[in-house]
Design a protein around this nucleic acid. Structure first.
Length: 156
DNA sequence: GCCAACGTTGGC
DNA sequence: GCCAACGTTGGC
């Protein structure tokens, strides 16, 4: 059992969009970074915990708890010529890009970056590190526990 | 819109 | 394999 933080731009897929989907489950399309892909391929397992994070928006931060509900498989958008995620160099025999299905367990309050940064014990959370751009990052169990506790409290 | 940080590409 | 140029991410 591992824990992850997964970024989504709410303009594309917000936590509300995911909640509105059948079974509150969405295919995590559009990962086009090898390190993030390899996390899904090599280390993610069904049942892993996920922090649903909104990026590139007015209030970036954690907005929900989710879980991984499928093994990784080929991301169909890489074969869709009309998709911004189309990759002409990928083939169906050897798909380059993968996805997993993610199910929202519950929407939470927005735990924004300033509050995350101000929380003792989260200094090493990868998403807070300067220059971090990875859309999928592993989350330490102690960070996971701390964040879940924070989400149950009022903003500080 | 700006820009720092990082990833990718491609010439050599 | 090196590394400069370029593209992307994402907070502000």
């Amino acid at each position: 059992m591992n824990y992850w933080l997964m970024k989504s731009e709410p303009d594309e897929v917000s936590v509300d969009d995911a909640l509105a989907a059948p079974d509150a489950t969405v295919p995590w399309t559009g990962v086009r970074n090898y390190q993030a892909r390899n996390f899904m391929r090599d280390r993610m397992q069904v049942g892993d915990g996920v922090l649903f994070y909104h990026s590139s928006c007015a209030e970036p931060g954690i907005v929900g708890i989710a879980r991984v509900v499928s093994a990784c498989r080929a991301d169909p958008t890489q074969f869709d010529t009309k998709s911004p995620y189309f990759d002409a160099a990928s083939t169906k025999d050897a798909p380059r890009w993968l996805l997993v299905d993610v199910q929202v367990v519950k929407k939470t309050r927005t735990l924004g970056l300033p509050e995350l940064r101000a929380t003792p014990g989260l200094e090493d959370l990868l998403v807070l590190r300067k220059g971090n751009r990875l859309s999928i990052t592993p989350v330490e169990p102690r960070h996971w526990r701390l964040i879940l506790a924070l989400l149950d409290q009022q903003p500080t």
